[in-house]
Simulated scan of single mutants.
Amino acid sequence: MASKPTPDTHTRAVNLRIREDVRGLIDRAARAHGKTRSDFMIDAARRAAEDALLDQTLVRVDPESYRHYLAVLDAPPDGEGFARLMKAPKPWQP
């Protein structure tokens, strides 16, 4: 007896109308990554959706915490860790 798909594994079709040149571009990119067109588009859409939602993150704090946060951002960097970082050899310098 076959088991029913769970919500995590159940897939549904999504139909898109797309210009031929864009479809060709997507197909070339998918082949370059060794993916099917569908897998490539799903991965790209998922990443774009995650980025869009992460950009919408709102952090609410009380006014005093916000003032402290701004003061920390406005203060010049200092401290032992910062001094050590600034003295460390730079990979791009001989």
Rank of each mutant, 00 (worst) to 15 (best):
K4Y: 15
K4Q: 12
T6Q: 02
D8S: 15
H10Y: 13
T11Q: 12
T11L: 03
T11W: 02
N15V: 14
N15K: 13
N15S: 13
N15D: 13
R17P: 11
R17N: 15
R17A: 12
I18Q: 02
R19L: 15
R19G: 08
E20G: 09
E20N: 14
E20W: 08
V22H: 10
R23P: 02
L25D: 10
I26Y: 04
A29T: 04
A30N: 05
A32T: 08
H33D: 10
H33M: 06
H33R: 13
G34W: 12
K35E: 13
T36W: 11
R37G: 02
D39C: 03
F40K: 00
M41F: 15
A49F: 15
A49C: 12
E50N: 03
A52P: 00
L54R: 05
L54N: 09
D55F: 01
L58W: 06
L58M: 03
R60N: 00
R60F: 02
V61H: 03
D62R: 12
D62P: 01
P63M: 09
E64M: 09
Y66N: 13
L73I: 03
L73A: 06
L73D: 00
D74E: 01
P76M: 09
P76V: 09
D78K: 11
G79N: 07
E80R: 11
A83V: 14
R84N: 15
M86T: 15
K90D: 14
Q93P: 01
P94F: 04
